[in-house]
Nucleic acid binder design. Sequence first.
RNA 1: GGGCAAGUAGCUCAAUGGCGGAGCAAUCGGUUUACAUCCGAUAGGUUACAGGUUCGAGUCCUGUCUUGCCCACCA
Length: 898
Amino acid sequence: MEELPKAYTPHEVEDRLYKDWEDKGYFRGSPDPSKKPYSIVIPPPNITGILHMGHALNNTIQDILIRFKRMQGFQTEWMPGTDHAGIATQNVVERKLAKDKVKRQDLGREKFVEEVWKWREEYGSTIIRQLKKLGCSCDWERARFTMDEGLSEAVLEVFTRLYEKGLIYRGNYIINWCPRCQTALSDEESEHRDVEGMLYHIKYPVKGSDKDDFVVVATTRPETMLGDVAIAVNPKDERYKDLKGKTVILPILDRELKIIFDSMVDLEFGTGALKVTPAHDPVDFCLGQRYGLEQINIMNGDATINSAGGEYEGMDRFEAREAILEDLKARGLFIKSEPHRHAVGHCYRCHTMVEPRLSPQWFVKMKPLAEPAIAAVKSQEIKFYPQRWTKVYLDWMENIRDWCISRQIWWGHRIPVYYCKKCQSNEDQKPGVRGQGSENGEGIIVSKTRPEKCPKCGGTDIEQDPDVLDTWFSSWLWPFSTFGWPKDTPELKYFYPTDSLVTAQEIIFFWVARMIMAGLEFRKAIPFKSVYIHGTVRDITGTKMSKSLGNVIDPLDMIEKYGTDALRFSIISITSQGQDVFLAEGKFELGRNFANKLWNASRFILMNMKPEDCRGDLCVLFKAVNLSLPDRWILSRFYSTLGLVTKCLDEFKFNEAVNAIYEFLWHEFCDWYIEISKPHLKETTTQLILYKVLEKSLRMLHPVMPFVTEEIWQKLPRDKDSMAGSIMISRWPHIQKDMISIKVEQEMGKVIDVITAIRNIRSAWDIVPGAQINILVNTHDISDSKLLGDNSEMIKRLARIADMKVGKMSKPKGAAASVIGTLEVYVPLEGLIDLEKERLRLKKEEDRVSGAIKSMEARLGDNNFTSKAPKDVVEKQRVQLIELTLQLEKLRANLKTI
RNA sequence: GGGCAAGUAGCUCAAUGGCGGAGCAAUCGGUUUACAUCCGAUAGGUUACAGGUUCGAGUCCUGUCUUGCCCACCA
């Protein structure tokens, strides 16, 4: 047989095998009515993305599922693609232009968008190449991009349908505004972070009273007082009873402010008096609506003060805050400031503090969409794994708020809304700028294509809304838009609904929830059946990995250093279901060592086999030949493991699956079976079993470690024509239940215990592993005699035995002893052992056993236990007690004869 | 303020309510027919704390403490 190199070298094989798989079209999924479909859509990475550990974990899991299902005979489709990532990408390109001192405004919209496309051509597929390095078996020929033609068509279709249904509206509300990106954000895009702020107490003089009569308001954002139109107090508040019918004077601007009495005001907080700024705070906005107050917007898009701010015009919001505080102090209207910790929204893209700001935007009415999406999860039509995310999802869905979908940037799907200027002539209109239009749809034309003229007045002075849609407005359609919707394609029919969605908790609201709503609204069917939420990858101290903290472990570095399979194996192995992953570089050694172990075991088997030895049939062999205990044992262990692994993969318990394979291959197959087989290597039976178990194990491991398994598998002698051209399209091994035997596993367990006991004695008495010793085994029943007699050869080998006697016998003088259940192992070592030490060794064991007996006797003596515990538990205890008592007797006898 | 998760060996994590295990690190000993990316052995524990349920609790319940995360209009 061909000899393998001494160590597995991933780099030589990975790119070669990947290219081969791709060239042969193994990743391709096409509708095939003769097979059941299994599909996954990738969470599309941003085109600005570079592969990080989160991606590595996320995509490894998906690849495991897809490869597993492909081998199980499903027609699989893993739909890949990328997201245009509106704000993120625009920021990247703007930063690039800034290096040449160019602003996007200098280029103009059209040129700038061209620049972004160019950038995308050049860098947008970096992450795709990296996913290939990770071994992902995506159907790359179908790869989609959220801005490509088909998906853009889907966006237009959805926008117009929702508008016609009355679920999209334009409105002037308080939204989260990022002054750096200069765009509106959705509530989800504004991340709350605790900030050490200040609460400032400011006097607002009461009109017409003497100087000492004033109301003290408390605020964290004093600069917004420029937009104050009222102050509000709770009607129950005794402190402010006298204010009825009065007004106060806004300091500095000297505007007269109403006093509102509303129960919305918290008596406990601050001074109990609230300044009302309807254009810059959601609560104030609400009050403003309720009492018909004026809305004064005091800021420009970049958070500088506008003309409404009088002398502060042009100052940045924080500059203005300081200036206003100074002026208040000068006028004696400032009382105090106190530290105040509170949560403040930050832009999820650039982390700038968000400014709540009144602004006309487009919204999606979410309640009607949420209802069926809630029902689908409540009815378990869609299941979350781990289950606890169900509650998180439902809580959010049941309190859902309307979705602000317009963004004041250039990169994205332009909103398919046109304004007829003539129809809008009565409105506040500034061409091309926010502010025109109205909620009742006056002058608004929603159309997939640019209308020639206004359908209402025939006017041709028509302008498209300058805004683009939120990035997630295209990604929420991903599970069906990628398959060709709105066209009714065969792929859509066959692969939709998809099966599993694998993602991180961060995007449950952004993406998962919205996909469910979109799927039900536009396809009248759920987008996927299972949602598997995996943990976040953190560093070893538990902090989230991020570039700015410098604690990232780059998956590509790890691939370079340890190999792709090692990366995949290790990260899966240490990720228990849905829990966060704590990563340190050393963890990848686990996978690398395992790949190497497998490689060497294969190398050993191939070195020792003849090609014709692989031709037999395992089932025939199993029935026809009286196999030895280790043979029957390894087959039983293999099929038990296969059963467990299959079950775990179906239940998204990836680490359990992976650890079961590891345990089996390394500690059972290599450490015991191969070692035991070494004297029998020339025998056909042994060779066939070694070969078959290896070959099937490779298939069982392939979804997790695709490269090393393929590389070895390719080097195996072909046993039948049925062995496909690649392990990745071979069949998942069939579970032979009749080969699983608990009795066999127990018997072998006893043999292993005997060998371990002998090793233990050798180690305790410093007998060098090479030196051979004599062993006497005192057995009391025939089955034990048979068990050890038949297999003495393997014990001989593994325990370095010169001579072994089994039967009824007594202990020779000066022997070390060990008691395993009912049998005793003696190692005659007269003169070599320290008798006092041996006594201590046995005494320790005696203490352990007698302790166990005591507690067991106590339990069995307790009427409560024997009457209330299940019968089988009690019976088990009784049997154990008898065994332990026998063992104790023997231990004591041995102690006496030292 | 509400919710979720976690707290077990030095570290990272396992353990259908039935004698608390593994990997790494440590200690000792090896190189046998693949593998030093190896093999064998050893040691290491008041399961965060306090109660409760139960014949029996790391596991279930209540409370406390610590940590992490998510959500939230106390300005």
